[in-house]
Computed example of a mutant assay.
Amino acid sequence: MKILLDFLPIIVFFVVYKVSGDIILATAVLIPATLAQMAYTWFKTHKIEKMQLVTLALVILLGGATVLFQDKTFIQWKPTIVNWLFGIAFLGSHFIGSKTVVQRLMESSIELAQQTWRRLNLGWVAFFAGMGVLNLVVAYGFSEDTWVNFKLFGMLGLTLLFILAQGVYISKHLPQQHKQD
């Protein structure tokens, strides 16, 4: 349910764009859809994750600029900025604190060597950097319609493939007792 809720604003953006063919209108609808998602999340859990706050701020800032200036460039840069900010945060965790972001998120479920946690985290840094670049390649090298499709299906698909690859990597680095369970 949480994953559907997280993707709801982008699904609304996608549907409005596909029905209207108007990226400015789709962006104008994305802003209140994202605000409604945050309000619902707050109502249900009484907390908002930092990642959600960053996304909300960028949707309001870049989405607002898109609508105000009638220029799709701002909203097309949003996925790149989000990915690069996450990449910087994950990279920063190598130098700040005793644990990487990936370790903090997963260590309650998985036991791995410190070096493995660091490699996993660096994998996410590279993934976020690459996704940011790829978003710009699609935004500037292909049609608007292709970019909208890529934003929903391409980015989601690549993220799922990367998660699967990380799962394979993790399975090869689990302590022996976990592999036999």
Rank of each mutant, 00 (worst) to 15 (best):
L62V: 08
Q52N: 12
V67L: 06
Y17T: 04
Q70R: 14
T55N: 11
P32M: 09
Q70C: 00
L56Y: 07
V54F: 10
A65R: 08
A26W: 02
A39K: 08
K50D: 00
A57H: 04
A65N: 08
T34H: 01
I24G: 06
L25S: 01
A28N: 09
A65P: 02
V54I: 15
V16R: 04
A65V: 08
Q37N: 13
T55V: 12
S20T: 15
S20A: 12
K47L: 07
P32A: 08
Q70I: 09
V29R: 06
V54K: 03
T41S: 14
K47A: 08
V59W: 05
M38Y: 03
T66C: 10
D71K: 11
L58G: 07
V19P: 05
L53V: 09
F43H: 14
Y40A: 12
L30E: 02
T55S: 14
V15G: 01
Y40V: 15
D22N: 15
G63F: 02
L61F: 13
Q52H: 13
F43R: 13
Y17L: 08
L68H: 11
S20G: 12
I31W: 03
K44P: 00
L61Q: 02
S20W: 09
G63P: 06
T34K: 01
V19G: 05
T41I: 14
L58M: 12
L53G: 15
E49N: 06
Y17P: 03
I31K: 01
W42H: 10
D71S: 10
D71I: 04
G21C: 11
G64D: 02
Q70S: 14
K44Y: 05
A65H: 01
M38L: 15
D22A: 06
E49I: 00
V54G: 11
L62I: 07
A36Y: 11
I24D: 06
D22R: 09
Q37D: 00
L30Y: 08
L68Y: 15
P32E: 07
A39S: 12
L25Q: 03
Q52G: 13
M51V: 15
H46T: 07
K18Y: 11
W42V: 01
A26T: 06
L53Y: 04
V19H: 01
T66L: 05
L56E: 03
V54E: 04
V29A: 14
L35W: 05
L61G: 12
A36I: 15
L25A: 09
Y40E: 00
H46I: 00
D71G: 05
Q70A: 14
I24K: 10
A36G: 08
K44N: 11
T66F: 03
H46W: 00
A26L: 03
S20F: 09
V67T: 07
A33C: 09
A39I: 15
M51H: 02
L30A: 14
A65I: 12
